[in-house]
Design a protein around this nucleic acid. Structure first.
Lengths: 228, 228
DNA sequence: TTATTTTTGTACCAGTCGTTATGAAACGTA
DNA sequence: TACGTTTCATAACGACTGGTACAAAAATAA
């Protein structure tokens, strides 16, 4: 099911039998206890974590259902019943990625000065990218940077999420200007784009095998551009 | 043919009937004139250019043979006879990309100062990324950043090519240090990585829809980090 | 003409893709 | 026990993947 013909999207409007959101929210269903029927044979949280790893490593398009079933330890029908389809599973993995991996961004935005925000953001990125247990690179970049028509919704989703992050950064820098933290001549939009570009560039370099020290060198140099 | 089973690589050791290199070197076979047999019904240069565009836009994995035949205006057997297989075609397209699109890099390295080298490199990248007729982003980045096992050789090839560019830049900066153009405290490796990271980051932002002016803003800011 | 060589179009290959139908298995409940 | 419900495993679906066999078509050489 790639491109040119009917694209009938057979399973798109399928409703998962069990409300995945609920089952996902509390691990192993603490509140909806004692449902009748055969119990789940796996931990949805761990399965989702495994799926995230695969997507992170191979990208959306490069990940096959067989990769997912192998990594998650369950078979296809369990995936579809619990998470929807491949696209829905990726989005849930992406949510998990944002919550668990890039939570330092929210913390960084609380730093008192614009420069401290930028520094903490970039150092946090270097940390994430060089964490030994993690795949190389950033899911928000390499999940679907260029792809076929089939994966295009995912590509657009990642673009939107990157844009959201950049907007939050720009707004933080606008506040910094109001607070006198940034010179009047500084352009918050340019600064936000610059910081994002450096982080995305670090992601590409990480995917190419850059070490923690090398990434830190990029961070140090990029902070020398800071105004004021 | 994706991953888990035999991976028999049926056509890998196939030898193209006609020496593709020769036919490619001179457009429409000026030197090897008057070969007998039915003449080629298409221009290999134009076909390769069309293939390059598709790979550039959709990445290696996202590009199907049907995409290529449609864009190149020829059918599969002609592709295989002229260029080899999909992987060989991508490599030829990548060569063309390097020669025609990123030739400004060689020019940039000839600039008299390290800063001028960096500036010309990044401005040239902004030009390339915002050239109206071109796909968004950079083929060397989004051709195969994260992918399945099948595309892994291409991913590694891109990593190697990016590393080659970074090494050339580092060597240029080392020369600049010898020439007194860069302070003794400057680290050529860090500087090269920094410039590459900014350019790769611009590529990601371009893929997300960044305009020429926005990319130029990134270039201007990143040059403020320059030592000396 | 006939023979030889090369390209073209068609139709196909085995394998994989994402997705699902089906029925057995495993639970709580009556 | 039997029932209702839910999950599990198997096996299949149609569509598409990269790659090819084959013969007709189009050129040169004899």
């Amino acid at each position: 099911m790639r491109k040119d013909t009917k694209k009938k999207r057979r399973g798109a409007l399928r409703i998962p039998r069990r409300a995945g959101g609920l089952a996902m929210a509390r691990s192993s269903a603490r509140l909806r206890v004692a449902r009748q029927g055969r119990p789940l044979g796996f931990d949805p949280e761990k399965a989702l974590e495994a799926a995230l790893r695969v997507f992170w490593e191979k990208g959306y398009e490069g990940t096959a259902l067989s990769d997912l079933t192998a990594a998650m330890g369950i078979n296809r029908p369990s995936i579809y019943a619990t998470f929807g389809n491949k696209e829905a599973l990726f989005r849930k993995a992406l949510d998990r990625y944002s919550e668990r991996m890039t939570n330092y961004t929210a913390e960084a935005l609380k730093e008192p000065t614009a420069r401290a925000v930028a520094e903490r953001l970039m150092v946090g990125t270097a940390d994430l990218l060089s964490c030994p247990g993690n795949p190389k690179g950033c899911l928000m970049v390499q999940g679907a940077l260029a792809c076929g028509d089939e994966a295009d919704p995912i590509r657009k989703e990642l673009i939107a999420r990157r844009a959201t992050g950049e907007a939050a950064l720009r707004e933080r820098f606008e506040r910094a200007k109001v607070e006198g933290d940034l010179p009047a001549a500084a352009d918050p939009g340019d600064l936000a784009r610059y910081v994002m570009a450096v982080m995305h560039g670090m992601s590409v370099q990480s995917a190419g095998g850059a070490s923690r020290e090398e990434l830190q060198g990029v961070v140090d140099l990029s902070l020398r551009a800071w105004p004021g």
